Computed example of a mutant assay.
Amino acid sequence: MDDLLRVDDRLNGDQRLIRDTVASFVSDRVLPHVADWFEQGVFPARELAPELGSLGLLGMHLEGYGCAGTDAVSYGVACRELEAGDSGLRSFVSVQGSLAMFPIWRYGSDEQKEEWLPRMAAGEAIGCFGLTEPDHGSDPAGMRTYAKRDGSDWILNGSKMWITNGSVADVAVVWAQTDEGIRGFVVPTSTPGFSAPEIHRKLSLRASVTSSLYFDDVRLPGSAVLPGVTGLKGPLSCLSEARFGILWGVVGAARACLEAAVEYARTRVQFGKPIGSFQLTQEKLAWMYVGMAQASLTAFHLGELKDAGRLEPKQVSFGKLANVRAALDIAREARSVLGGNGITLEYPVIRHMNNLESVLTYEGTQEVHLLTLGKALTGLDAFR
């Protein structure tokens, strides 16, 4: 499909190489299988992690410790191409790099960094991020998971929910209340008292491992705490990193849906001619392209702000809100172009559409981002 606005002309040589490398990986290793993974509700994390690591995609925007150290736009482009395959694939990479590796890299001790980051960058160890709880999603300040000191150790109790990679992870970055405020803990999943049962019966993000986490008197050494941060600043900064990957990634999902709709419209014949020749179908396709191109331009602009060190959380909220909404609208419109065929896994559209329903919710719901923008515009906080 033509890039009518030539948006990718903004990419430099290294960024183009990353785009093409990730697109080839997705085409060769993911697209032939992802419909089956989705239907079966499985994701081969252990198989794919070393391959993703060998491509330098895990923690790729971080410096040192075996990480690629790419710029923000390069990371965004990689997320876009991964999510053109499936949101579950991009979620795996986002959680590994932005939610599990980033807090260790930013707030961890030298020992924590040396122990985990090289292995995670190589895909030899998988991480997860424990913040959301059954009763505390949009309001993480109310979390009930609690860690208390016991001599030089910590005792962790509580639970987390909707945790990507949870049951396949080797390490969990867990946020908990303490007498000192909210702290982050690096928790090896082999620690006694830790369990991570997988959540089943999902109809969205089926090609992704989603789990609950339970902590039953999990004893951790004093060295398990992230020394560099106290309070919500820690987990919220991680969410900003992940949201940046999302606002790029959903452009890939939207593009995949639009490409499927365009190809179908060219070849599906009704009333003696391709449905793409009808004005109503062309109107749908044109608006879908407009939405995708606008989302892509937003992603590039925010990527350039991030590379310049000027990206603010409220701008990330704008991108996550606008781009996910646009991608979901495009997926739904593409489904209508495909008619009855749009609900089968022979085409990628219903899979992307269902996935985007989850993406709309996680890393901040639509309502949370709307209120973040409302506060930025009015100076008035609607959360409290």
Rank of each mutant, 00 (worst) to 15 (best):
G166K: 03
N157H: 07
G137C: 02
E133H: 12
A169E: 14
L131I: 15
R119W: 08
S167M: 04
V187W: 01
S138F: 07
S159C: 13
F129M: 07
G127D: 06
G166W: 00
L156Q: 01
D170L: 01
D150S: 15
L131K: 07
V186N: 00
I126Y: 10
T164E: 05
R144S: 13
P118C: 07
I182D: 05
R119I: 07
E115T: 15
A169K: 11
P134E: 08
E115W: 12
A125P: 07
G127W: 04
A176L: 08
K113W: 01
G151A: 13
A169C: 10
W162E: 10
D170C: 03
M143T: 12
D150W: 09
I182H: 14
A172R: 03
D153P: 03
D153V: 03
H136E: 14
I126C: 08
R183S: 04
R183F: 03
V187S: 04
G127P: 07
E133G: 09
V187Y: 01
D135K: 14
A121W: 12
K160G: 02
A169G: 14
V186D: 00
G184A: 04
G127S: 06
G123W: 05
K148M: 08
A147P: 03
A122R: 14
G181I: 09
Y146C: 12
V168M: 12
N165D: 14
G151V: 12
P134D: 05
V171K: 11
D150F: 11
G184S: 06
W162P: 00
P140L: 01
D170Y: 06
T178V: 07
W162D: 13
N157G: 01
F129A: 04
G137H: 13
D153R: 12
R149N: 09
A125C: 12
C128I: 04
F185T: 00
A176S: 14
P118Y: 11
G166M: 11
G151D: 13
W154D: 01
P140K: 08
S152Q: 08
G130K: 02
K148T: 15
G137T: 10
A122L: 10
A172D: 02
